[in-house]
Design a protein around this nucleic acid. Sequence first.
DNA 1: CCGATACATAACTAAACAGTTATTAATCGA
DNA 2: TCGATTAATAACTGTTTAGTTATGTATCGG
Lengths: 107, 107
Amino acid sequence: MQAVPDLLFKALGDPTRRALFERLSRDGELTVRALTTGSGVSQPAVSKHLGILKIAGLVHDRPAGRETHYRATPQGLAPMIDWIGLYGAFWRDRFDRLETLLKEMDQ
Amino acid sequence: MQAVPDLLFKALGDPTRRALFERLSRDGELTVRALTTGSGVSQPAVSKHLGILKIAGLVHDRPAGRETHYRATPQGLAPMIDWIGLYGAFWRDRFDRLETLLKEMDQ
DNA sequence: CCGATACATAACTAAACAGTTATTAATCGA
DNA sequence: TCGATTAATAACTGTTTAGTTATGTATCGG
């Protein structure tokens, strides 16, 4: 049981956390205050969720004075994509083709 | 908050369920009994997990006499792949390129 | 300096959840 | 037919977890 995927899947299993990640992905860097607004939960709840997302490798925080700016680090999704490639047999071929093609394009 | 992705992410958020899905993906169709063996949990626990995976669209059951055969339906992963494509900005371009290329290949 | 603001943490609560054992219902085989 | 097997469900339990309010700590602006 690999630890990284577990934290990742668990982190994204919660809809509030997923919404936070989605918002950061769309809007770029945001403060905790900005994220709290419209999240439907309290500021401490947001801070806790951000902490979990951070451990999962999905966000990065940049403290600046009294505020903390968060941004999404979508590279953190990589283990999930790898997992789909490994166990989603239906998609395997497509991923294989993708990798081959991307390698060709990068040359 | 779309319902389908939520059930899907939640279903895969549990390591025991993920292991069951992985095994079905690898080994093909298996009975509940076979899945229980080596799962580390009891038969009722396995049955419950399979029920959740079924609602999430990740497995399909085929009752045959007193045993029920389960198989993975990896197409159920599609909403997750869509989600990654939508919100994983880092991967977005790669997925777009994939779609374009696959369409070209299908012609 | 000092009030206000921003964020994190502590402490707690209620609900969700993963697991158990016990039981039921159905089917198989000797 | 009857004991054994298979799987689902019921009922319960303990833990996890997502939320809250309260508090602490640091920083900013007047």
